[in-house]
Amino acid sequence: MKISAVLAAAALAASFLTAAHAEDQTNIKIATEGVYPPFNYVDGGKLTGFDVDIANALCDKAKLKCEIVTQEWDGMIPALVAHKFDAIVASMNITDERKKKIDFTAKYYDTPAKFMASKDAKITDVSPAALKGKTIGVQGSTTQQNFLEAKYKDSDIKTYTTVDDASADLAAGRLDLVLSDKVLLDAWLKKSSDGSCCELVGDDLRDPLFGAGKGVGVRKDDTALREKFDAALKDILADGTYEKINAKYFPFSIY
Rank of each mutant, 00 (worst) to 15 (best):
S141P: 00
S141Y: 04
T142F: 05
T143N: 04
T143C: 01
Q144G: 03
Q145I: 06
N146Y: 04
N146T: 11
N146K: 08
F147Y: 14
F147M: 10
K151Q: 09
K151T: 06
Y152V: 05
Y152Q: 06
K153Y: 08
K153W: 07
K153T: 14
D154C: 08
D154Y: 07
S155P: 03
D156Y: 07
Y160P: 01
T162G: 06
T162S: 07
T162P: 03
V163C: 10
D165G: 13
D165C: 11
A166W: 04
S167G: 09
A168I: 15
A168E: 13
A168R: 06
D169A: 13
D169K: 06
L170Q: 02
A172E: 15
L179G: 00
S180V: 06
D181N: 09
D181H: 04
V183C: 01
L184W: 00
L184G: 00
L185S: 01
L185D: 00
D186M: 05
A187N: 03
A187R: 00
W188V: 06
W188T: 00
L189P: 01
L189T: 04
K190C: 02
S192T: 10
S193A: 12
D194V: 10
G195F: 03
C198G: 02
C198L: 03
L200G: 06
V201D: 00
L205S: 10
P208D: 15
P208I: 12
L209E: 01
L209M: 10
F210E: 04
A212S: 14
K214Y: 04
K214R: 11
V216Q: 05
R219C: 08
D221R: 04
D221H: 02
D221N: 13
D222V: 13
T223V: 13
L225C: 07
L225V: 09
R226D: 15
E227K: 14
E227D: 15
E227L: 14
D230R: 12
D230V: 13
A231W: 07
A232C: 07
A232G: 09
D235Y: 09
D235V: 15
I236Q: 14
L237R: 13
A238Y: 10
A238V: 12
D239N: 15
D239C: 11
G240H: 06
G240K: 10
T241M: 13
Y242R: 15
Y242L: 14
